[in-house]
Every structure is written in structure tokens, then in C-alpha cells.
Design a protein around this nucleic acid. Structure first.
Lengths: 364, 364
DNA sequence: CTGAAAGCGCTTACAG
DNA sequence: CTGAAAGCGCTTACAG
């Protein structure tokens, strides 16, 4: 088993010298570009194979000034939503010959050390911050996922937007339709956070309830700092403290279940910020002996793969994160390759029925 | 908002010309290596900042003949185990300044187009095949995860081995301890597959049962081709059919539940090939009205994060895939950097108690 | 159809 | 402490 471990790797120059031709010809033959005498081409290709020649993608990248890599700027795949997005962008990127990479740590400084042609940002808040911090000095094409949260972005950044305001409406209206009126909202931030899902919830709950909307929100925020919408996603950039900043929606959901019970809320249903939060809440309620959906109904938002694991199957508002990821990749690659592309893509949401909501209409 | 989009990026040469020094000095100043007059260094750094200079990592990679990227050779993160491994290797790699990348498609041919310093193989079967196919002509350091399955590898490939034979023993013995004797095995391949978990199951079940071991195996194999241990992981390499080749253990687990019911097996417990299979089986049993663990106990193998989502919490044999991934990354990076490293690492397993096993002892 | 030359952006002995 | 030079492995006008 000869290994090339210690030997110097074969280059195009080696092949050229062996065959008594120039590297230009070798390059043309191997790349199948430009004129090469047919017999010579054959011979070059055969020789390359025999010598075990392997191209050096780094040298090609330098020459062609492109890496065929795009960065998904998120810490490792810590939450189910990002994971789905990653799957979607991976598929699309691959079809176009690109690879999606992740730094594994959120640090703007690190981006410049990474061999990439462009960046996909997981949300608009991070994008806003990124553009403020490094956007002026450093150009790379950027595409951002977006959820209709309030930010101030230069319009030069394409957005792939899921209307989470609408998602909340869809979820609430489904619950109304099923006969629910007393509906709680499981929310992983402070109630002062101007999140689109929270805004929509306020709006919707007031249609059916006379109580203050605050009475219906189960807000889980351990750290005050987490509630700053600007800090929640990239605090680590400031305080090299990346491990602490994982957002664990599942764990927050579990805590929400405890708060829900402590407060003896008389809701018949809970709609949650996202699926992972919903799964946490559901699991903890079940652990405490509460039956879902017999005693309480639960609805998530996102449509991640994890929802299929549980019993009862989680009812959710499907935002199709895979499609969103794919669209982000498509647009980014279009930008990189200087093709025309859309600057805003809206993606629709739809209710995905599971088994976690009780039909209260049949009761009367 | 000035963007460098259209402008040519600043290089070290630009800085050098502007300051009337050589690129060598600029390089030394920016890299903080070698002698540079202190005042000059300051000035160079300041100027670089003002001009919005951004280093070209590709050029550095070419020069230094290293990419600081390592490949995890798996299709996107399709199964929970690989996902955990990825998380572990990501963490370790990051601490050492490396990035873990994935091609998103299994194709040996594609590896050579990827800018990497080494490869982590997800299992020994794939490694064996890889070495047969391209190992002779193409050298890159390789580390392989391993599960004590029968393969023929040159000993030059370091293994990070989890003894799945032992894991099965641990799971079975726990069930025995809890008073179970009639135990089924949920297996995603044919019973002719020489998998270490299957071998251990045969051994263990014969300790408590007089029936043939085959009577206790629920084997789910849709496609004949999938059963070939060699084909199951890389068929796509031969038949550009990558989408079809996803292994969906969860779905197989669901089917296993149906087979289990159809066959009216009188087992009191099922031990499953892995957690995902166990989750699928559990969910489908619950859907059919079977209570876990009251009617049937379930044990998984792996200890993936997904097990926390469900009720009852899945009892499993924890193989710590994160640690395995981390160890793979560590060893690979040691090899890349020519440090001494171990050639075989054995990782122990341990039972992780959940709520999915009924204690039959209290009954008598 | 071919090959010498310049270039991608950086690094690093080496001679001053 | 500095800078000219060679080099990393490849590509691509351009002159023959």
C-alpha cells in the first residue's frame, strides 16, 4: 500500500516535465479547455492518472478568486430551525457546486480568516449588527433570513423573509377555529422585546379575551441581558463567552411549563414561540402529569423535523425552514455569480395539523 | 455606505506601495512575525485598518499548504448520531483553529475538489471502501469512527472505537436486571448483516430464551441492496442517486412497530439499533395505542440529544457521540500537525436511565 | 495547436 | 531591521 504521505505531491509541472510539454498544455488538457492535440490530451490524462495526480483546489481558488464555499453564520447547529435551514441550503448549494460551511463560533473577526465567497445570516438582527460593525470595511455578498422583526437594514441586503406575524395569526386562528379562547403564549424573551410574534399575539388575543395580554404571556428570560434583542444573538462577540450564549429553546419551554403551572393559568391552549420551545413545554407538562391535548392543547411554530418525534404529534405553523435555507443559498450564489436576483423573497406559512390540539367544538 | 463590491480589494502590495516599503515588511508587521521597526509596524497596522484591508485566506493557505479545514465525510447531517458527532468535532476543531466541513453529498470524486487537510470517516465500512478506491492514489490523513464491525483496514488508519457489542450487552443486562426476559431487537438491516450489535444480541438473548434468536429480531429492510453492508453507505457513489440513499432510522423504527404488532410478538421489551430507530418505534407504538413503558419497554442505543424530546424519556446506552466526534477531530488534527497521536481510542458506554423501561421486579 | 510569461496574494529564507 | 527574489500550484491572454 504505497502512501503519498511522505512524498511530495505530484503537480502539473511534474507531468509537463515528464512528458516534455509545457504546463499550459497540461492545464488545458486536464481542464478540458482550449486547444490541445487529441493524442497529447489522452496521454496527459493517462499520465496524470498513473502518477496519482490530484489537483490543488486551493491554487485554483486563488487563481480564480472564488472558493465555492459559503458561510452560514451560526454557531454549530444548535437549534432545530437552523438545522433545517442548513439542510435546505446544503442541498441547493450542492446542486450549484458550492459547499456550506459554518465557523462553529460566532465571531465577526473570524469571518475574514475563512475561505468563503459570501455569507448567509440567520436573522435580521445579526445582519444589522454585522453591517454596522464590519460592513463598511469588508465586502462580501450577504443574504439574510428575516422574520419581520424591526431592524434598520440598507436595502442592498437581500432578505428571505418569513412573515412570523402572519404565522402567529394562522396559529391563533386555528385555535379559535377549534373553539379555544383562553390561549397562552410561550415566549423565550422579555415582554418588552419587539418581536413580531409577540406583536401578533397581542393583537389576536385581544379579539377573544378581556384580560390584559400580559396575563397570557409566559415569558422565560433568565438573564436580563438576553432580553436585549441586539444582544441575544451575538453577545459572545463582545465577551468571548460563546459557550454561555447557546439559546436552548427546549429548556426554556420546560421552564415555561413550570411557570404555567405555578401561575395556575386557566388557558385551554398554549401557542409557542417555536417548535423546540413547544416540545420542551409539552414534555415537561406531560412529566407533571398534564395530558396533551386532553388537558391542554399545544401549538408550535416552524415545522422542524423534531416535531415528528413526539406523541402527540405536534401541531405547528409550518414556515418551511428548509425552503428558506435553500432560497438564501440560491440568492447568495446568484449574487456571487453576478446573476440577477430578487432582493426580497416572501415565504408563506401554513398550518400543519398534528395531534396536539383538542377540538373543543364537539363538546358543546 | 461605501461598499467594496466593485472596487478591487486592497492587498499587502497596495499598503506597501502607499507607505513606500516592501511587501515583506508589511507581511511581517501584519503577521507579527520577524523584525519590523516598531514605529513602522504601528503605521502599517493603522494604514491597513484605514484602507479596509482584509487578508486573503486562500493565498495564505496556498503558501502554507494547509487549509485549516477538515472534512466530515457524511451526507448532510441526516441522522441524529452524525449530528452529535459533528457537534463534538466542531468544538474540538474550533479550539485548535480548524473548521469542520461537509460536502453534503457522498462522492469520493468530490473530495479532491475540496479544500481540506484531512478526513473523518463516520464508520469503518466507508473507510474500508474509501481506502480501496482512492487510498492508493490520493493521500490525505484519515481518521475513522468505528463500531467493532468486521472490516479489513490497514492499521495506519487511526480508529475511535465505540464497542457497540458491549453497548448491546449493557442494554440487555439492564433489561434482564429489570426483570425482562422476552426481549425483541429492532434492527434496520437484514439478519445476515454481520453487525456487532446483532451478534451481541444473539449471544445475550440465548441466555434467557429457548427460542431461536431470529424469532426475536424485528428486521426492517426495504431494499435488498441496502442490506449489503458495503453498499448501504455509499451506493450513491456508483449510481448518482444520492437522494434515495438517506438512511431514515426513524421511519424504519415506525415500520418495526407495525411488524412487531403484526407478528403479535410477546416480548416485554424492545432494544433498538439506535435512538432514532427507538424513537420511531416508540412513537408508532404509542400511535397504535400501546403504552410505553406500561405495555412495552423500549431501550435505545447512542445517547443522542433527540431522546430528551419525548415522553417517556428514552432509556438508552450512551455512547457519547459528541466525545467520539471530538476525539476524531483531535487525532486528525494531531496527524495533520505531525504530532504523536494514538492509533486506537476505545470509548466506553454507559446506561442512561430514562422512563421507557418498566421495572418488572416489583410485580412478583 | 503550443509555450513562455505574467499573475492570483501571500510567505520566508537570504543577502544586505 | 529591510527588501528583492523565489516560491506555493494553478490559469490565461498572447505571441508564435
Amino acid at each position: 500500500m504505497p502512501s503519498r504521505n511522505t512524498e511530495k505531491p505530484i503537480t502539473r509541472k511534474d507531468i509537463a516535465e515528464l512528458l516534455g510539454v509545457s504546463v499550459s498544455v497540461v492545464s488545458r488538457a486536464l481542464n478540458n479547455s482550449g486547444y490541445v492535440e487529441e493524442k497529447k490530451r489522452q496521454k496527459i490524462i493517462r499520465t496524470a492518472e498513473e502518477l496519482g495526480y490530484v489537483p490543488q483546489p486551493v491554487a485554483m481558488s486563488l487563481q480564480e478568486r472564488r472558493t465555492k464555499q459559503i458561510l452560514f453564520y451560526c454557531k454549530d447547529l444548535n437549534n432545530e430551525f437552523n438545522l433545517e435551514m442548513y439542510r435546505g441550503m446544503c442541498k441547493t448549494a450542492n446542486e450549484r457546486g458550492y459547499m456550506v460551511v459554518m465557523n462553529g463560533v460566532l465571531s465577526f473577526a473570524r469571518i475574514r480568516d475563512t475561505m468563503i465567497d459570501g455569507i448567509i445570516m440567520p436573522n435580521e438582527n445579526l445582519t444589522e449588527y454585522y453591517l454596522e460593525q464590519v460592513g463598511k470595511n469588508y465586502y462580501l455578498p450577504v443574504v439574510s433570513a428575516s422574520y419581520c422583526n424591526p431592524v434598520n437594514l440598507p436595502k442592498s441586503v437581500p432578505l428571505v423573509e418569513i412573515d412570523m406575524y402572519r404565522a402567529m395569526e394562522v396559529g391563533m386562528q386555528y385555535l379559535f377555529h377549534m373553539g379555544h379562547k383562553r390561549i397562552a403564549f410561550g415566549f423565550p424573551y422579555s415582554t418588552t422585546n419587539p418581536n413580531s410574534r409577540l406583536l401578533a399575539f397581542k393583537e389576536q388575543i385581544s379579539l377573544k379575551s378581556d384580560r390584559r395580554w400580559q396575563d397570557w404571556v409566559v415569558s422565560v428570560h433568565w438573564l436580563d441581558k438576553r432580553d436585549d434583542i441586539r444582544l441575544m444573538a451575538f453577545k459572545e462577540d463582545m465577551e468571548d463567552n460563546s459557550l454561555k450564549m447557546e439559546e436552548d429553546f427546549f429548556a426554556k419551554g420546560e421552564i415555561a411549563a413550570q411557570l404555567f403551572q405555578e401561575r395556575k393559568m386557566d388557558a385551554t391552549a398554549v401557542i409557542c414561540f417555536n417548535d423546540e420551545f413547544a416540545l420542551g413545554m409539552m414534555r415537561e407538562l406531560q412529566r407533571m402529569g398534564v395530558k396533551v391535548p386532553q388537558d391542554i392543547s399545544i401549538v408550535g411554530i416552524d415545522g422542524t423535523r423534531a416535531r415528528r418525534y413526539v406523541t402527540p404529534l405536534l401541531t405547528t405553523v409550518d414556515a418551511n425552514p428548509q425552503r428558506q435555507g435553500g432560497e438564501c443559498a440560491k440568492i447568495l450564489i446568484d449574487m456571487i455569480e453576478k446573476k440577477n436576483t430578487k432582493y426580497i423573497v416572501h415565504q408563506s406559512v401554513r398550518l400543519l395539523e398534528g395531534e396536539s390540539v383538542k377540538d373543543l367544538r364537539s363538546r358543546r
